[in-house]
Simulated assay, not measured.
Amino acid sequence: MTLLRQQMTEAMQLRGLAERTQESYLSAIQLLARHYGSSPDQLSETQIRQYFLYLRNEKRVSPSTANVALNALKFLYAYTLDRPWPFGDLIRPRLPTKLPVVLSSAEAWQIIHQVRRPHYRVCLSLIFTCGLRLLEGVRLQVSQIDSARMQLLIRGGKGKKDRAVPLPPATLRLLRQHWSTHRNPVWLFPSPGPTRDQWASATTPVEESAIQKAFRRALTETGIAKPASVHTLRHSWATHLLESGVNLRLIQAWLGHSSPSTTSIYTHLTRTAEQQASVALEALTAGLS
């Protein structure tokens, strides 16, 4: 490990950045260093500008990937090199505004039931019925289940925030049944070993990539044409709750969103909202007849 990489890693740890963010930032800085064959702290402003033009015009990376590279470099300047950032927002790419994909309840269950391995199928069922992020579902621990209050206690979610989400009775029964197949004292979804007997002593949870691959395979086999991912289950959960009349602020708390504006995107996805809008428009145009 180079001294600069070590210093940046320590700076990110001190500022409490998530592990995934740290990995993404280090990878972005490493790609920049490889591109020029030089340490990033030795690069000129012109070289950095040219690098972002290269990402846009030649590599044609997505705006989100370019933003990760930009944020990583800004962190390097501010907290590792202690230098002022000379570019302002001049090279920040504009992110497109996209509505998330939503699966109907029938579509979601069609995909989940197509997953062959019970270990993965139960994990996806949990994610869908509780509106969890993939990492939250994979790393769920036995101690996080509060059956007395019918809640899941999500510890250290995105933004290092704890929250409680409702646990449907049917989901609790499914989790209990699944746990009885391995009885690991810590993990609901322990990393599967060569034999089921080893699940009980596993010290790590199942890999996220395994759940993602299982979902993609099931999606392909069902023939559903929507560009869905595991995270689509969370979007679908929130949208269906909103359609059923659940208060938006309550959904915001369950999702762990800091701002109601983040949650309000689901109002654009509900069929109920569209139907209400159609009724309102018909009323407005009644004078035309």
Rank of each mutant, 00 (worst) to 15 (best):
Q7K: 12
M8T: 09
T9H: 02
T9D: 06
R20P: 00
T21Q: 08
Q22R: 15
S27G: 02
A28Q: 00
H35T: 00
S38M: 13
Q42R: 15
E45V: 09
T46P: 09
T46D: 14
T46V: 13
R49C: 15
R49S: 12
F52P: 06
L53V: 09
R56N: 08
R56Y: 12
R56P: 01
N57I: 11
N57L: 14
N57C: 12
N57F: 15
V61W: 08
S64Q: 13
T65G: 05
T65I: 05
A66M: 13
N67L: 15
N71E: 09
A72H: 11
K74T: 03
F75G: 01
F75P: 06
L76S: 03
Y77M: 12
A78Q: 15
T80N: 05
L81M: 12
W85G: 09
D89V: 11
R92L: 12
P93C: 13
P93Q: 10
R94C: 08
L95F: 06
L99C: 05
P100R: 13
P100K: 04
L103W: 06
A106E: 12
A108F: 06
W109H: 02
I111S: 10
I112G: 04
I112Y: 01
Q114N: 08
R116T: 09
P118C: 07
H119Y: 04
Y120K: 06
R121C: 03
L124E: 05
L124V: 06
C130R: 04
G131D: 01
G131N: 07
L134E: 00
L134D: 03
L140T: 00
Q144G: 05
I145Q: 10
A148Q: 11
M150Y: 07
R155K: 06
K158Y: 01
K161A: 09
D162G: 04
A164P: 02
V165N: 03
P169I: 09
T171D: 03
L172I: 02
H178G: 01
W179I: 07
W179C: 04
T181Y: 06
H182W: 01
P185L: 03
W187R: 01
L188K: 01
F189N: 00
P190E: 05
P190A: 08
S191T: 03
G193P: 00
D197M: 06
D197R: 14
Q198C: 04
W199D: 14
P205Y: 02
E208C: 11
A210P: 00
A210T: 02
Q212F: 09
A214D: 07
A214L: 00
R217L: 11
R217D: 05
A218Y: 02
T222M: 12
K226H: 06
P227W: 08
P227Q: 04
A228W: 11
S229Y: 00
H231Y: 04
H231T: 07
T232D: 01
R234P: 05
W237C: 03
T239W: 09
H240I: 08
L242R: 03
N247Y: 13
R249H: 13
L250W: 12
L250K: 07
Q252F: 09
Q252H: 05
A253V: 11
W254K: 01
H257A: 10
S259E: 08
S261G: 01
S261Q: 15
T263F: 05
T267S: 12
H268P: 09
T272S: 12
T272W: 11
E274N: 10
E274G: 15
Q275H: 13
Q276P: 02
A277M: 13
A277F: 13
S278W: 13
A283C: 10
L284V: 07
T285H: 15
L288H: 15
S289R: 14
